[in-house]
């Protein structure tokens, strides 16, 4: 019972962790509060749902969902860079448009995958035989995908292109003096971020085997909570990359929710709980940040 609960927390934490890494790119690196996430997560679900429902490769479906998320993120970036719409509004526009798009892709508001649909999990069901260990097979597959995404992102951040992405959020003016167009870099960053979010949606689709057009609500808040936990609580740990912290942040977050539910919190109150948890992390964040800033000015 406890073992199952823990496995469930880890599975969900790691899937949503991929999404949180996307939020980390926009919120922390680009300093762009991107609400498209609430639409690109279900976009990933929708794209993946239709593909595996038609018997296409479930792995191909992950790649397609990533690409679809990239395209959606590019729109958010284009709204901001080319049409000069304020960043918060850009995300809201994309999110709103995606509601219709996602509905259109699947053709109805909600649907389930039939039991005989091939998914990445059905293909790997007996990875560890059919004994007690079989309950770890899903977690193993999720772990591989999440770590692949994490290492890819870590690697990208250390490339020249990744350096530019980091500097555009840090100091846009410097990017201009380097003779690069900050707008283009912002668009690339938003594309990668939403690609990751949509990839998370695609994994979640095969995991939960369901599509619901409204399932994106609250995704960005969840992602932000994980990012803030990851960048404050786990920042203290030496030699740990922030992406690892963000993944762990999401696991912690999911654990809190699961424990609350198991302790008898009515499911309809989870959003309230999410908000409270979010405010709590923000308050902690503020407290920790202020302390750190005070420390820096002492050095200066």
């Amino acid at each position: 019972m406890i073992e199952g609960l823990i496995i469930g927390i880890l599975e969900q934490g790691l899937i949503y962790g991929i999404m949180a890494m996307g939020v980390y790119i926009t919120y922390t690196i680009l300093d762009f509060p991107d609400l498209s996430v609430d639409g690109t997560f279900p976009l990933g679900i929708a794209v993946c749902f239709v593909m595996v429902n038609h018997g296409l490769s479930p792995w191909l479906a992950l790649i397609a969902a990533f690409a679809a998320g990239c395209a959606a993120g590019m729109f958010t970036g284009l709204f901001n860079v080319k049409l000069k719409i304020r960043n918060l509004l850009c995300g809201i526009l994309t999110m709103t448009a995606l509601y219709s798009v996602n509905y259109g892709i699947v053709g109805k508001a909600s649907d389930f995958l039939s039991m005989d649909t091939t998914t990445i999990f059905s293909q790997t069901e007996f990875l560890f035989g059919n004994g007690h260990m079989a309950m770890y097979s899903k977690l193993a597959v999720i772990l591989v995908i999440t770590l692949a995404a994490k290492f890819a992102l870590d690697w990208y951040m250390r490339t020249k292109s990744g350096f530019l992405l980091r500097s555009v959020g840090d100091n846009e003016g410097l990017v201009v003096t380097l003779a690069k167009n900050p707008g283009t870099i912002k668009i690339i960053g938003l594309a990668i971020a939403n690609g990751l979010v949509s990839l998370a949606g695609a994994v979640y689709c095969q995991y939960g085997r369901a599509f619901n057009v409204g399932s994106g609500t609250g995704t960005v808040v969840m992602g932000l909570a994980a990012v803030i936990i990851g960048t404050t609580v786990f920042r203290k740990v030496k030699f740990m990359r922030i992406t690892t912290g963000v993944l762990l942040g999401m696991v912690v977050y999911k654990a809190c929710i699961s424990v609350a539910l198991a302790a008898g919190l009515p499911a309809q109150n989870t959003n309230l709980m999410i908000t409270l948890l979010f405010i709590a992390t923000l308050v902690i964040n503020e407290f920790v940040l202020k302390k750190r800033k005070a420390g820096v000015s002492k050095n200066a």
Partner: peptide
């Protein structure tokens, strides 16, 4: 990292190692 990024001005910022 700052010096590496400045040193690359005028070239492409591709997927090669940043430092």
């Amino acid at each position: 990292e700052n010096m590496s990024i400045a040193d690359n001005k005028g070239k492409t910022y591709d997927l090669s190692f940043g430092l």
